[in-house]
Nucleic acid binder design. Structure first.
Lengths: 226, 226
DNA sequence: ACCTGAACACCGTTCAAGT
DNA sequence: ACCTGAACACCGTTCAAGT
């Protein structure tokens, strides 16, 4: 307002927290967690490494901020559905897709316990759990179960993506190779894993993820007489 | 047996994978993830850094192996209870306690998706889910939900412990400081989080964890007519 | 077969000095 | 107030050389 420099200037804008975060996201997206380096970052931004420290505290701060930016967009993109239950499902799926598109987010979210990105999710989930009519005393446990589950899935998927990349495989080939390992385990010692080897490669992660959400939601009972 | 060197010799045993893993666990336990360094490790083992590479592939291999050792002990310590449901609860609690005692395990487990430690858990959980009578087609989703949830909680708790350590606080003081932050958030924008600030510091993580397990277990329906 | 330890190619972070 | 870029104190990993 008033005399502020227009913040939408399209060329050589001065360094800012936002520009740093965008650059960090780009580096993370196409290099994984190892791709984010202060040297790569400062090169991409055309500045010195030290300049970045004027705007961010340290690397962990940067990673959390980048994670938060992705979470904000994912949450904003989730339409509010007709029922609280549908809204929670949509939110969960939106996060799943965001973590799938940005494989590093699952891990970042995991390390950001109690910080902005998780607080955002707690708030969103909490509002819907309330709307569901869950008793006050049970709300926190419900929200925390949902959050932990979502973050757990995201983190595991991120790890899979990372291993696949480390071995120079695409995700599906990587899962097939894991399935192959499982298949060769002694069925005496590993009856379940051995039997599941086939399912592993075939199954739809997104559907499995949603099945877990439904399991959790199914256990939430609205408080009666209120 | 026979001519093998006695493997329980108490002094200056030669380097071995097991000795390396034990030393790694000790370093991780009292220095967190940053405490595990090839230099610290080789010093503790009285060898050169390069010697370690004869026995392990790389740092990630070492971390996964250390994690696996902890998981093996935790799983072995879990008595088989009367019912599959009770066994699953006991296993989950055993893991929770192990991850609590070794704050780095949650994070290591998270990064070990599809590898030995998680496969072990999948097998144990799977056997009990089967014993529960869950239909074949639903078993994988059930096991994966349980695993993801357990790992999610462990990872988040590990992150909390790490932040607490980084700020030089004990866990409870750290949670109180987070609760303080939540309390000062605008209740207009953060109604749920603001309301939960009190609960955060007071609540029993272990009980909340178990509540989530029960939520998941409650949704598992034995197949009928079988 | 197993171990040594110096060397390599990186990191994140700091800080005097500039504008 | 904001940026520079050299310097510092580390990393994980490799590899010729030893036994």
């Amino acid at each position: 307002m008033g005399t502020t420099k227009r913040s939408t200037s399209r060329r050589e804008e001065s360094l800012s927290r936002d520009r740093i975060i965008e650059a960090a996201i780009a580096l993370l997206d196409d290099g994984g967690e190892d791709g984010l380096t202060f040297r790569a970052l400062s090169e991409r931004l055309g500045t010195g490494a030290g300049a970045i420290y004027w705007h961010i505290a340290d690397k962990s701060d940067l990673l959390t901020a980048a994670c938060d930016a992705v979470v904000v967009r994912a949450v904003a993109a989730c339409a509010r559905e007709a029922s609280p239950r549908a809204t929670i499902r949509a939110l969960a799926l939106g996060l799943f897709d965001a973590m799938d598109a940005h494989a590093w987010v699952g891990s970042a979210l995991m390390h950001a316990a109690g910080q902005l990105p998780t607080v955002r999710l707690i708030e969103r989930l909490g509002q819907q759990v309330r709307a569901l009519g869950v008793a006050d005393a049970a709300q926190w446990a419900a929200v925390s179960a949902l959050l932990h589950y979502i973050v757990g899935v995201g983190g595991q998927n991120a790890a899979n993506a990372r291993h696949a990349q480390a071995h120079g495989l695409v995700r599906s080939d990587f899962l097939e190779s894991v399935a192959g390992t499982w298949e060769h385990l002694d069925p005496q010692d590993w009856p379940f894993v051995h039997a599941m080897a086939g399912e592993l490669a075939a199954h739809d992660d997104r559907a499995d993820f949603l099945a877990g959400i439904d399991l959790l939601l199914g256990g939430l009972k609205p408080a009666r007489g209120r």
